[in-house]
Computed example of a mutant assay.
Amino acid sequence: MKHLFILCLSFLISTADAQQAIRFINLTGTAEHIVDADEIVFNIQVRTTAKSLDEAKKKNDEQISNIRKILAELNIKKDDFEIHPISLGKEYEWQNNKRVDKGFFAATNVTFKLKDFSRYYEATDKLASSDNFTVNSYYNLSNFEFYNKTTYQKALIAAKEKAEYMTKALNINIGKVLEIEETGDYQPPMLMRNKMEMDSAGSETIAGKITIRKSIRIKFELID
């Protein structure tokens, strides 16, 4: 039994030594895509208040009906907008560190995609006509997943190419991949830029670019 224990211990030490003997190179690869945005996503929050819940909901329904008319005027297709379920509840306001009952509220979110950038100012003018709307918008890519995947692949290739020319200078080669890790999580997935342009009719419009950046860390085994 004692001999068996010594044999197992020797095997573990040998295995640990073999693992420690692995030579490797640890580096990062970075890639970037700058792409023209092909749609603007609008998020509209419709919030109405009243003394009764029924009245608050009726006012909200009226505003949603107005938004539907605006979307029809902008030729927004049914597949490009969504009306989210309504939220209903009590409305409160803080006064002198006390919560005061102010009636009831009804809230609904509407999102839609604007693909004709020449109608951007028309869209914002129409949406600005109501005090019950809170509007946010941002540039978007309809095929974002394609560029996201492609940028990852380019970052991996960049890391491999870097490893190859660094090891070539030392007359050694890279072997199998030991680890892969995404880095640079502090960076936003998309950086957006916009500019003013003139369309073919001479009207002012906007255009935006989206920058997608990815950084990958790879550990390669080194072989002679």
Rank of each mutant, 00 (worst) to 15 (best):
N173A: 09
L4Q: 14
E73K: 00
Q63V: 14
I83W: 00
P188G: 05
T211W: 12
A37C: 04
S130W: 09
L88W: 10
K115D: 09
D101C: 07
F24G: 03
E82F: 12
I67L: 07
A50H: 02
L222V: 05
Y152Q: 03
L178V: 03
I67Q: 05
V110S: 01
T15I: 12
S52L: 09
K149D: 05
F112L: 05
G29M: 03
F11N: 12
I83R: 01
Q20K: 10
L127P: 00
F105N: 06
K69W: 11
M198A: 13
F144L: 10
I76P: 01
L74R: 03
D125P: 02
S129H: 04
T108G: 04
M1A: 13
K209E: 13
I180Y: 02
S10W: 10
N26Q: 14
K98S: 14
Q45F: 07
D101M: 04
S14G: 15
M190Y: 13
T151Q: 01
T15Q: 15
K160I: 01
I25L: 04
Y186A: 11
F117A: 06
F112R: 06
K176V: 08
G29C: 04
Q45N: 15
F146K: 14
F117G: 05
F146G: 03
K113I: 00
D199G: 03
Q95L: 10
S118I: 03
D79E: 11
M190V: 14
Y138Q: 13
R193Q: 15
I212N: 07
T28N: 07
T124I: 10
R193V: 07
S14M: 12
